[in-house]
Amino acid sequence: MRHGFAPGRICSHWEDQMRILINGRTVDEDFIERVEEISEQNIKRCMQCGTCSASCPMEADMDLSPRVVMHFTQMGLRDVVQGANTVWICASCHTCEARCPRGVDLPKIMEAIRLLTLRKNKDAVDPRQLEATVIDEAPQAAMVGCFRKLTA
């Protein structure tokens, strides 16, 4: 099995739901507040230009592109954002952060969204399920980085 782990999916692929309902009741203010608090970023600065998505090396396999994660976070769609695989595929490469014309530090926002799940003791990877051949060959830095970003 090459694709070792399923990220911690909480809800299904948003595109399968065809449309997303947005009204006063769907806005999770607490989610917006927590993301801004943990990341120390003002998510309203994002103007949806899409530079982040165009720059992202992992975007092709994301449920939601980084731009859409920003948009849905602005709208407080906690379940959709936390249910997408985006933050679990993000490699914290900081390309989006370097290129954002609005100075938004997206990797910090990705981290905040990851932490909202990890802090409830839900892991996105299980170290004990790593393939033995991979541990034989991978550098320690890969294991340390992966477990720090993707386990609680």
Partner: peptide, 9 residues
């Protein structure tokens, strides 16, 4: 792809 080689090879 960094450490994602382990979780999203």
């Amino acid at each position: 792809g960094s450490y994602q080689i382990l979780s999203h090879p």
